[in-house]
């Protein structure tokens, strides 16, 4: 009962305070907007910062933001990270919306859970660019590779190098993500089209070298001769499993990490090892950022922006292997110009 009496006074009091505060802040915001009309602020809501890819992704976008600030394209840029926690990212998004940036870039923790808050942002006149992990909200611009096509492309390379037949091991990423679902679908399309290719094992690799190595190592305990491995970013872990088990090396589709590139370039020098490597590099944040800058300045783009993966072959390998630190990724650098060349504004 006491609680009820208290809430009778407290709730309206809180409401009044909240209303007056929001009234104040929107008043000051419009004043600020009137002062500096075109260049606005851009923010990035990032769902997770705990791995090398994400850390590089944030470093990359910060580098672009410095450029854009220097040239006067934006006035401010900031990054907010959540710990792979949907609820935390939603509340951070709500706080960001109150600050009224021109554009919110988002790497979402869930394809659907953030739709509500993304819609709120769109309704408030903020452009939202979702990249890497897709979201289903209609109003957002979505930048990601075409994972099914990428899966087909990479699997085709492996099958071709295997001579069209043989045993393959598939190493999946984080099960259930749209990236993994898309790539698996692409792999399976190619495998169905090549009856000579037999899948002798599928393991979860979680896009992590250590996990992949342990699980492939376990599979090798029972697997017959393996001719090809499809592992996406944890290719180096898969190779380590073969080395540890003293099994002959199969065709492995590579990843652009320094560890893999260094190993590949050593193998190439020693015995002419030849493969291909491609991945969606962390610089996708730069591409999304420059799209955001152009959206803030009134340009328009299609809602679906297919991101090109960065490909390495024996021809450009050595240079990239030398310049890429072990835990970093060989990647492209996006500028305002190259982004507009790739995705022409309407």
């Amino acid at each position: 009962m006491k609680l009820n009496k208290f809430s009778l006074i407290a709730v309206p009091a809180l409401l009044v305070t909240a209303l007056s505060l929001s009234g104040c802040s929107s008043a000051t915001d419009t004043a600020a907007d009137a002062g500096a009309k075109t260049p606005g602020a851009i923010v990035l809501s990032n769902s997770f910062i705990g791995n090398a890819w994400r850390q590089t992704m944030v470093d990359d976008v910060n580098a672009s933001a410095e450029e854009a600030k220097a040239s006067g394209d934006i006035v401010d840029f900031s990054v907010v990270n959540s710990n792979n926690d949907v609820a935390e990212q939603i509340s951070q998004m709500q706080a960001l919306i109150l600050k009224k940036p021109k554009v919110i870039l988002i790497l979402a923790a869930s394809p659907t859970a953030l739709n509500g808050v993304i819609q709120t942002a769109c309704d408030a006149g903020i452009k939202v660019v979702a990249f890497d992990a897709s979201v289903t909200a209609d109003c957002a611009y979505k930048m990601a590779p075409d994972w099914v096509a990428f899966g087909e492309e990479t699997m085709n390379v492996v099958v071709k190098r295997m001579g069209g037949k043989g045993n393959v091991i598939l190493v999946h990423g984080v099960d259930g993500t749209d990236v993994d679902l898309g790539m698996s679908q692409g792999w399976n399309n190619v495998i169905k089209a090549n009856p000579g290719v037999k899948v002798v094992g599928e393991v979860a690799g979680n896009w992590d070298d250590a996990t992949t190595q342990t699980n492939v190592g376990g599979l090798l305990a029972t697997a017959p001769k393996v001719d090809g491995v499809m592992a996406y970013v944890s290719a180096y872990g898969a190779i380590q499993a073969f080395v540890a088990a003293k099994r002959p090396l199969p065709v492995v589709y590579g990843s652009n990490q320094g560890t893999f590139l260094k190993w590949w370039s050593e193998q190439k020098a020693a015995n002419g090892y030849d493969t291909e490597s491609a991945m969606e590099g962390p610089a996708i944040s730069q591409a999304a950022f420059w799209i955001g800058v152009n959206l803030a300045n009134g340009k328009e783009f299609p809602k679906k922006l297919v991101y090109p993966t960065f490909r390495i072959t024996n021809d450009n390998l050595d240079e990239l292997a030398a310049s890429t630190p072990a835990d970093a990724f060989a990647d492209q650098v996006w500028t305002q110009e190259s982004v507009l060349a790739q995705w022409p504004a309407n």
Binding site: D208, A210, T211, Q213, Q240, T259
Partner: peptide, 16 residues
């Protein structure tokens, strides 16, 4: 031992 096995460190090395 794990470092020797996987030839270096990675963030998920202890997860399992």
């Amino acid at each position: 031992l794990l470092g020797g096995y996987s030839g270096g460190a990675s963030l998920g090395v202890g997860a399992g």
